[in-house]
Protein backbone atom coordinates (compact mmCIF):
# COMPACT_ATOMS: atom_id res chain seq x y z
CA UNK A 1 0.00 0.00 0.00
CA UNK A 2 2.61 2.48 1.12
CA UNK A 3 4.58 1.96 -2.11
CA UNK A 4 1.81 3.00 -4.43
CA UNK A 5 0.18 5.83 -2.54
CA UNK A 6 2.09 8.96 -3.33
CA UNK A 7 1.13 11.53 -0.76
CA UNK A 8 3.18 14.30 0.80
CA UNK A 9 3.28 12.01 3.81
CA UNK A 10 4.78 9.17 1.78
CA UNK A 11 7.68 11.36 0.69
CA UNK A 12 8.61 12.33 4.20
CA UNK A 13 11.77 11.11 5.88
CA UNK A 14 12.57 7.43 6.14
CA UNK A 15 12.07 7.34 9.87
CA UNK A 16 8.61 8.77 9.66
CA UNK A 17 7.70 6.44 6.82
CA UNK A 18 8.80 3.47 8.87
CA UNK A 19 6.79 4.70 11.84
CA UNK A 20 3.79 5.17 9.64
CA UNK A 21 4.00 1.68 8.29
CA UNK A 22 4.92 -0.01 11.57
CA UNK A 23 3.52 2.26 14.32
CA UNK A 24 4.51 -0.25 16.98
CA UNK A 25 8.25 0.20 16.30
CA UNK A 26 8.84 2.48 19.33
CA UNK A 27 7.15 -0.09 21.55
CA UNK A 28 9.32 -2.79 20.02
CA UNK A 29 12.43 -0.70 20.63
CA UNK A 30 11.43 -0.25 24.28
CA UNK A 31 10.86 -4.00 24.66
CA UNK A 32 14.26 -4.79 23.15
CA UNK A 33 15.97 -2.17 25.34
CA UNK A 34 14.28 -3.58 28.44
CA UNK A 35 15.27 -7.12 27.46
CA UNK A 36 18.90 -5.97 27.14
CA UNK A 37 18.70 -4.19 30.49
CA UNK A 38 17.28 -7.35 32.02
CA UNK A 39 20.16 -9.33 30.54
CA UNK A 40 22.65 -6.78 31.82
CA UNK A 41 21.45 -6.95 35.42
CA UNK A 42 20.82 -10.67 35.40
CA UNK A 43 22.21 -12.64 32.44
CA UNK A 44 20.15 -15.58 33.55
CA UNK A 45 16.93 -13.66 32.88
CA UNK A 46 17.46 -13.94 29.13
CA UNK A 47 17.50 -17.72 29.25
CA UNK A 48 14.87 -19.63 27.30
CA UNK A 49 13.40 -20.79 30.58
CA UNK A 50 13.04 -17.32 32.12
CA UNK A 51 11.54 -15.87 28.97
CA UNK A 52 9.01 -18.68 28.86
CA UNK A 53 8.15 -17.89 32.47
CA UNK A 54 7.77 -14.19 31.69
CA UNK A 55 5.50 -14.97 28.78
CA UNK A 56 3.28 -17.34 30.74
CA UNK A 57 2.96 -14.81 33.57
CA UNK A 58 2.13 -11.87 31.33
CA UNK A 59 0.11 -13.69 28.65
CA UNK A 60 -3.08 -12.72 30.50
CA UNK A 61 -2.15 -9.04 30.45
CA UNK A 62 -1.21 -9.31 26.77
CA UNK A 63 -4.67 -10.67 25.96
CA UNK A 64 -6.40 -8.12 28.17
CA UNK A 65 -4.49 -5.31 26.46
CA UNK A 66 -5.57 -6.67 23.07
CA UNK A 67 -9.14 -6.85 24.35
CA UNK A 68 -8.94 -3.20 25.38
CA UNK A 69 -7.45 -2.22 22.01
CA UNK A 70 -10.55 -3.11 20.01
CA UNK A 71 -12.80 -0.81 22.05
CA UNK A 72 -10.15 1.93 22.03
CA UNK A 73 -10.08 1.63 18.21
CA UNK A 74 -13.66 2.91 18.21
CA UNK A 75 -12.86 5.68 20.68
CA UNK A 76 -14.49 3.84 23.58
CA UNK A 77 -12.93 2.41 26.73
CA UNK A 78 -13.73 -0.63 28.88
CA UNK A 79 -13.04 -0.25 32.58
CA UNK A 80 -14.72 -3.60 33.20
CA UNK A 81 -12.22 -5.74 31.25
CA UNK A 82 -10.42 -6.79 34.44
CA UNK A 83 -13.62 -7.76 36.19
CA UNK A 84 -14.76 -9.77 33.16
CA UNK A 85 -11.45 -11.60 33.54
CA UNK A 86 -12.16 -12.24 37.24
CA UNK A 87 -15.70 -13.40 36.51
CA UNK A 88 -14.65 -15.86 33.79
CA UNK A 89 -11.77 -17.05 35.97
CA UNK A 90 -14.00 -18.03 38.90
CA UNK A 91 -16.75 -19.36 36.62
CA UNK A 92 -14.50 -21.80 34.77
CA UNK A 93 -12.67 -22.90 37.91
CA UNK A 94 -15.93 -23.65 39.73
CA UNK A 95 -17.42 -25.41 36.69
CA UNK A 96 -14.31 -27.53 36.12
CA UNK A 97 -14.28 -28.57 39.75
CA UNK A 98 -17.99 -29.40 39.78
CA UNK A 99 -17.73 -31.51 36.64
CA UNK A 100 -14.77 -33.54 37.90
CA UNK A 101 -11.83 -31.88 36.14
CA UNK A 102 -11.60 -34.29 33.18
CA UNK A 103 -10.70 -33.22 29.64
CA UNK A 104 -14.35 -32.98 28.62
CA UNK A 105 -15.20 -30.89 31.69
CA UNK A 106 -12.30 -28.52 31.00
CA UNK A 107 -13.28 -27.98 27.38
CA UNK A 108 -16.95 -27.48 28.18
CA UNK A 109 -16.08 -25.00 30.95
CA UNK A 110 -13.81 -23.08 28.57
CA UNK A 111 -16.57 -22.91 25.96
CA UNK A 112 -19.00 -21.58 28.55
CA UNK A 113 -16.31 -19.15 29.75
CA UNK A 114 -16.05 -17.71 26.24
CA UNK A 115 -19.82 -17.34 26.09
CA UNK A 116 -19.78 -15.59 29.46
CA UNK A 117 -17.11 -13.17 28.25
CA UNK A 118 -19.14 -12.45 25.12
CA UNK A 119 -22.26 -11.89 27.22
CA UNK A 120 -20.41 -9.37 29.39
CA UNK A 121 -19.12 -7.64 26.26
CA UNK A 122 -22.64 -7.55 24.83
CA UNK A 123 -23.98 -5.92 28.00
CA UNK A 124 -21.22 -3.29 27.87
CA UNK A 125 -21.88 -2.66 24.21
CA UNK A 126 -25.62 -2.22 24.72
CA UNK A 127 -25.09 0.08 27.68
CA UNK A 128 -22.48 2.27 25.98
CA UNK A 129 -23.46 2.23 22.31
CA UNK A 130 -27.21 1.58 22.29
CA UNK A 131 -28.20 3.35 25.51
CA UNK A 132 -25.52 6.02 24.88
CA UNK A 133 -24.15 6.18 28.43
CA UNK A 134 -20.62 7.58 28.83
CA UNK A 135 -18.16 4.73 28.41
CA UNK A 136 -15.92 5.52 31.39
CA UNK A 137 -18.65 5.65 34.02
CA UNK A 138 -20.94 3.04 32.44
CA UNK A 139 -18.25 0.35 32.19
CA UNK A 140 -17.15 1.22 35.72
CA UNK A 141 -20.71 0.49 36.83
CA UNK A 142 -20.81 -2.80 34.93
CA UNK A 143 -17.43 -3.69 36.44
CA UNK A 144 -18.98 -3.40 39.92
CA UNK A 145 -21.82 -5.65 38.74
CA UNK A 146 -19.45 -8.25 37.26
CA UNK A 147 -17.33 -8.22 40.43
CA UNK A 148 -20.48 -8.83 42.47
CA UNK A 149 -21.34 -11.77 40.22
CA UNK A 150 -17.81 -13.16 40.59
CA UNK A 151 -18.07 -12.86 44.38
CA UNK A 152 -21.41 -14.67 44.22
CA UNK A 153 -19.90 -17.57 42.30
CA UNK A 154 -16.81 -17.77 44.52
CA UNK A 155 -16.87 -15.61 47.68
CA UNK A 156 -13.22 -16.18 48.62
CA UNK A 157 -10.16 -16.93 46.53
CA UNK A 158 -8.75 -20.41 46.64
CA UNK A 159 -10.64 -23.06 44.71
CA UNK A 160 -7.89 -24.85 42.76
CA UNK A 161 -8.08 -25.42 39.03
CA UNK A 162 -7.82 -29.06 37.93
CA UNK A 163 -4.24 -30.25 37.51
CA UNK A 164 -4.91 -31.21 33.90
CA UNK A 165 -5.58 -27.56 33.09
CA UNK A 166 -2.62 -25.79 34.67
CA UNK A 167 -0.18 -28.61 33.88
CA UNK A 168 -1.06 -28.18 30.22
CA UNK A 169 -0.70 -24.39 30.40
CA UNK A 170 2.64 -24.49 32.18
CA UNK A 171 3.87 -27.62 30.40
CA UNK A 172 5.28 -28.58 27.03
CA UNK A 173 3.85 -30.08 23.89
CA UNK A 174 6.28 -31.86 21.53
CA UNK A 175 9.14 -30.26 23.46
CA UNK A 176 7.90 -26.70 23.00
CA UNK A 177 6.38 -24.80 25.96
CA UNK A 178 2.61 -24.57 25.63
CA UNK A 179 2.55 -20.75 25.86
CA UNK A 180 4.33 -20.56 22.54
CA UNK A 181 1.44 -22.42 20.93
CA UNK A 182 -0.89 -19.91 22.55
CA UNK A 183 1.21 -17.06 21.19
CA UNK A 184 1.24 -18.61 17.71
CA UNK A 185 -2.51 -19.17 17.84
CA UNK A 186 -2.97 -15.59 18.99
CA UNK A 187 -0.87 -14.20 16.15
CA UNK A 188 -2.90 -16.17 13.60
CA UNK A 189 -6.16 -15.01 15.20
CA UNK A 190 -5.01 -11.38 15.14
CA UNK A 191 -3.91 -11.69 11.52
CA UNK A 192 -7.29 -13.07 10.52
CA UNK A 193 -9.06 -10.34 12.47
CA UNK A 194 -6.93 -7.63 10.90
CA UNK A 195 -8.15 -8.79 7.48
CA UNK A 196 -11.79 -8.45 8.43
CA UNK A 197 -13.94 -5.46 7.67
CA UNK A 198 -14.79 -5.07 11.35
CA UNK A 199 -11.38 -3.68 12.37
CA UNK A 200 -11.51 -1.08 9.60
CA UNK A 201 -15.03 -0.16 10.61
CA UNK A 202 -14.04 0.20 14.27
CA UNK A 203 -11.19 2.50 13.28
CA UNK A 204 -13.50 4.51 11.04
CA UNK A 205 -15.98 4.99 13.87
CA UNK A 206 -13.17 5.98 16.22
CA UNK A 207 -11.69 8.41 13.73
CA UNK A 208 -14.90 10.35 13.20
CA UNK A 209 -18.14 8.89 14.44
CA UNK A 210 -20.31 11.42 12.67
CA UNK A 211 -18.54 10.92 9.35
CA UNK A 212 -18.76 7.14 9.73
CA UNK A 213 -22.47 7.41 10.36
CA UNK A 214 -23.01 9.72 7.45
CA UNK A 215 -21.20 7.41 5.08
CA UNK A 216 -23.68 4.72 6.00
CA UNK A 217 -21.83 2.67 8.61
CA UNK A 218 -24.06 1.12 11.28
CA UNK A 219 -22.20 2.85 14.12
CA UNK A 220 -24.10 1.33 17.05
CA UNK A 221 -23.72 -2.33 15.96
CA UNK A 222 -20.06 -1.72 15.16
CA UNK A 223 -19.34 -0.33 18.62
CA UNK A 224 -21.23 -3.25 20.18
CA UNK A 225 -19.07 -5.65 18.15
CA UNK A 226 -15.99 -3.89 19.54
CA UNK A 227 -17.18 -4.62 23.07
CA UNK A 228 -17.97 -8.21 22.04
CA UNK A 229 -14.38 -8.65 20.87
CA UNK A 230 -13.23 -7.13 24.14
CA UNK A 231 -15.32 -9.61 26.13
CA UNK A 232 -14.02 -12.49 24.02
CA UNK A 233 -10.35 -11.60 24.53
CA UNK A 234 -10.93 -10.87 28.22
CA UNK A 235 -12.25 -14.43 28.54
CA UNK A 236 -9.12 -15.74 26.79
CA UNK A 237 -7.05 -13.67 29.22
CA UNK A 238 -8.98 -15.32 32.05
CA UNK A 239 -7.98 -18.76 30.72
CA UNK A 240 -4.32 -17.73 30.84
CA UNK A 241 -4.51 -16.30 34.34
CA UNK A 242 -6.24 -19.49 35.47
CA UNK A 243 -3.44 -21.53 33.90
CA UNK A 244 -0.84 -19.33 35.55
CA UNK A 245 -2.28 -19.10 39.09
CA UNK A 246 -4.01 -22.51 39.01
CA UNK A 247 -6.87 -21.18 41.12
CA UNK A 248 -9.95 -18.99 41.18
CA UNK A 249 -9.91 -15.50 42.64
CA UNK A 250 -12.92 -13.17 42.33
CA UNK A 251 -10.71 -10.06 42.53
CA UNK A 252 -7.74 -11.19 40.42
CA UNK A 253 -8.45 -8.85 37.51
CA UNK A 254 -9.30 -5.69 39.44
CA UNK A 255 -5.84 -4.18 39.20
CA UNK A 256 -5.32 -5.33 35.63
CA UNK A 257 -7.84 -3.01 33.98
CA UNK A 258 -5.75 0.13 34.29
CA UNK A 259 -2.64 -1.80 33.23
CA UNK A 260 -4.49 -2.89 30.10
CA UNK A 261 -5.28 0.75 29.29
CA UNK A 262 -1.64 1.67 29.94
CA UNK A 263 -0.46 -1.14 27.65
CA UNK A 264 -2.67 0.13 24.83
CA UNK A 265 -1.19 3.63 25.18
CA UNK A 266 2.34 2.22 25.45
CA UNK A 267 1.69 0.47 22.14
CA UNK A 268 1.16 3.84 20.50
CA UNK A 269 -2.61 3.63 20.01
CA UNK A 270 -4.62 6.81 20.49
CA UNK A 271 -7.19 6.70 23.30
CA UNK A 272 -9.31 9.08 21.25
CA UNK A 273 -9.78 6.28 18.73
CA UNK A 274 -9.21 5.81 15.03
CA UNK A 275 -5.59 4.88 15.28
CA UNK A 276 -3.70 1.94 16.73
CA UNK A 277 -2.33 -1.56 16.40
CA UNK A 278 -2.87 -4.71 18.42
CA UNK A 279 0.79 -5.65 18.03
CA UNK A 280 1.64 -2.42 19.82
CA UNK A 281 -0.65 -3.37 22.71
CA UNK A 282 0.94 -6.82 22.88
CA UNK A 283 4.36 -5.17 23.14
CA UNK A 284 2.97 -2.63 25.60
CA UNK A 285 1.82 -5.41 27.93
CA UNK A 286 5.24 -7.08 27.67
CA UNK A 287 6.84 -3.69 28.44
CA UNK A 288 4.95 -3.53 31.72
CA UNK A 289 6.06 -7.07 32.55
CA UNK A 290 9.67 -6.33 31.63
CA UNK A 291 9.72 -3.10 33.64
CA UNK A 292 8.63 -5.03 36.70
CA UNK A 293 11.33 -7.59 36.03
CA UNK A 294 14.10 -5.03 35.39
CA UNK A 295 13.25 -3.14 38.56
CA UNK A 296 13.50 -6.40 40.48
CA UNK A 297 16.78 -7.54 38.92
CA UNK A 298 18.36 -4.08 39.32
CA UNK A 299 18.34 -4.81 43.03
CA UNK A 300 15.99 -1.94 43.84
CA UNK A 301 15.17 -2.01 47.58
CA UNK A 302 11.77 -3.66 47.97
CA UNK A 303 10.02 -0.57 49.32
CA UNK A 304 11.15 1.46 46.31
CA UNK A 305 10.11 -1.09 43.67
CA UNK A 306 6.51 0.11 43.21
CA UNK A 307 7.66 3.71 42.97
CA UNK A 308 10.33 3.00 40.37
CA UNK A 309 7.89 0.85 38.40
CA UNK A 310 5.28 3.61 38.52
CA UNK A 311 7.79 6.21 37.42
CA UNK A 312 9.14 4.02 34.60
CA UNK A 313 5.63 3.28 33.36
CA UNK A 314 4.77 6.99 33.41
CA UNK A 315 7.88 7.76 31.36
CA UNK A 316 7.21 5.09 28.74
CA UNK A 317 3.54 6.13 28.63
CA UNK A 318 4.68 9.60 27.64
CA UNK A 319 7.05 8.09 25.10
CA UNK A 320 4.20 5.99 23.69
CA UNK A 321 1.96 9.02 23.29
CA UNK A 322 4.68 11.13 21.70
CA UNK A 323 5.75 8.37 19.31
CA UNK A 324 2.16 7.62 18.34
CA UNK A 325 1.60 11.28 17.56
CA UNK A 326 4.74 11.47 15.46
CA UNK A 327 3.63 8.46 13.45
CA UNK A 328 0.28 10.07 12.77
CA UNK A 329 1.63 13.52 12.02
Amino acid sequence: MAEITITPRGRAGGMRRLLERYPFLPALAIVVALLLLNGFFSPNSLSYRSLTGLLSTYMALVLLAIAQTYVVYAGDIDLSAGSILSLVNVAIVVLMERWGGGAGAVLLALALGLLLGLACGLLNGIVVAALRLQAIVATFATSIFFTGLALYILPVAGTPAPALFWRTYGGRLLGVPFVFYILAGLVILLLVLSRTRLVTQLLAVGDDQQAAFQSGLPVVPIRIKGYLLCGFFSALAAFCITGDTASGDPLVGGKMTLYSVAAVVLGGSALSGGWGTVVGSLLGALTIGLINSVVFFMGTPSEWQNFVQGLAILVVLMAGVLAGRRARA
Binding site: V127, F145, G148, L151, Y152, V219
Partner: peptide
Protein backbone atom coordinates in the same frame (compact mmCIF):
# COMPACT_ATOMS: atom_id res chain seq x y z
CA UNK B 1 -24.02 -10.37 51.38
CA UNK B 2 -21.21 -8.54 49.63
CA UNK B 3 -21.81 -10.09 46.21
CA UNK B 4 -25.48 -9.11 46.12
CA UNK B 5 -24.63 -5.64 47.38
CA UNK B 6 -22.15 -5.07 44.56
CA UNK B 7 -24.53 -6.38 41.92
CA UNK B 8 -27.34 -4.13 43.13
CA UNK B 9 -24.94 -1.17 43.39
CA UNK B 10 -23.64 -1.64 39.84
CA UNK B 11 -27.12 -2.13 38.40
CA UNK B 12 -28.47 0.91 40.27
CA UNK B 13 -25.61 3.09 39.02
CA UNK B 14 -26.45 2.07 35.46
CA UNK B 15 -30.13 2.77 36.06
CA UNK B 16 -29.40 6.21 37.52
CA UNK B 17 -27.14 7.06 34.59
CA UNK B 18 -30.16 6.62 32.36
CA UNK B 19 -31.47 9.85 33.88
CA UNK B 20 -28.30 11.78 33.16
CA UNK B 21 -26.47 13.13 30.17
CA UNK B 22 -27.12 10.36 27.69
CA UNK B 23 -25.35 11.15 24.45
CA UNK B 24 -27.35 12.31 21.47
CA UNK B 25 -28.43 9.84 18.83
CA UNK B 26 -26.46 9.97 15.59
CA UNK B 27 -28.12 12.03 12.93
CA UNK B 28 -27.29 12.31 9.30
Amino acid sequence: DESGRQMVFGATLLLLMMFYGRGRAMRA
